[in-house]
Nucleic acid binder design. Structure first.
Length: 217
DNA sequence: CAACCGATCACCT
DNA sequence: GGTGATCGGTTGC
């Protein structure tokens, strides 16, 4: 298995300002592509570049957890922007969202897939895939090509991470930017929902092999 | 390779 | 008591 280089892969990276998330989730979604999700734990640095997200809006979006109003579970969505909203789904998986909009207004971006950048061995271990050879993109994409996989790779759980401030310099779960620019952005319907399913709110880096599913037109 | 299915939890009605 | 912003293994074209 290939080793990480000694040089810090986030040397040129900086934390996004909170204002980045203080607006409509659709704007945030388009610009979040190419940014970095960073996990720091036990002296290790785990990071991936976002290649797929979905926007979830407020009361008009019946697929959003916030649609029925504020509850104890979804209260993070109504809090300040830039916080992690983590929920448990289908009895098996966690999903990571980042809250958007000013405090008091709901909205978020679901982080659905990322290209692994740093801490490949750690992520593989967390995914139970330590035996694979990650020299090939074919295996590399197994690490975080879906919201549940991404959370497993970064060891994200509701108990541990819900409501964490992802734009705080001291947080062990952060969003960063390093000047990387994505190419063409594709927009499709969201995955796996039934209500408000027709709205085109899924944003992917066109041609990336690290996205979850390719949607046929 | 598409389609189906089981796992099995938190939340809301 | 029903539902769901998923995944991975299996089945059957």
């Amino acid at each position: 298995m290939r080793r990480e280089t000694g040089h810090d892969p986030l040397h040129h990276a900086s934390i996004l300002p909170r204002s980045f998330f203080n607006r409509d989730p659709r704007e945030v979604s388009a610009e979040l592509l190419g940014k970095l999700i960073v996990r720091r734990e036990r002296g290790k640095l785990l990071a991936g570049r976002v290649v797929e997200v979905e926007a979830y809006l407020g009361a008009d979006d019946l697929a959003a957890h916030a649609a029925a109003g504020r509850t104890e579970r979804n209260s993070v969505l109504f809090g300040p922007p830039g916080h992690a909203y983590v929920y448990f789904i289908y009895g098996v998986h966690y999903c990571l969202n980042i809250s958007c909009m000013p405090e008091g207004e709901a909205g978020c971006v679901l982080v659905r897939a990322m290209e692994p950048v740093s801490g490949i061995e750690e992520m593989a271990k967390a995914r139970g895939l330590s035996d694979l050879d990650f020299g090939s993109a074919r295996n590399l994409r197994l690490l975080a090509s879906g919201p549940g996989k991404l959370c497993e790779a970064l060891d994200i759980t509701r108990a541990r991470d819900n409501d964490k401030d992802m734009v705080s310099p001291r947080c062990d779960l952060q969003v960063m930017e390093d000047g990387y620019l994505v190419g063409k952005v594709g927009i499709t319907q969201r995955i796996g929902i039934t209500k408000s399913a027709e709205m085109p709110l899924r944003y992917v880096v066109a041609g990336s092999p690290f996205v979850s599913v390719k949607i046929k037109n």
